[in-house]
Amino acid sequence: MKIKVVYLASLREQLGKSGEDLEIAPATSTVAGLRALLMARGGAWQAALAQGRALRVAVNQEMAQPTTPVKPGDEIAFFPPVTGG
């Protein structure tokens, strides 16, 4: 299935990428599954997305959890904890 992935703020800098369109196996059906898939790229991906790193995820621009489902056409954004205001 096709999805859109977005990387923001310090995570974008660590990955050297602001986003990408991905074709993933339907079995990668949750946020946690997608994170694991991206980490498997190794290098900066492994380091920046490692468990224990404070990361937030939004699915279709709503805050999400590791268990949130990922469906075809979804926009999944990874970013650090927010610091506005």
Partner: peptide, 10 residues
């Protein structure tokens, strides 16, 4: 806003 709105400061 400080904990839920997606803003980041550099």
């Amino acid at each position: 806003l400080k904990t839920r709105a997606p803003f980041w400061k550099k």
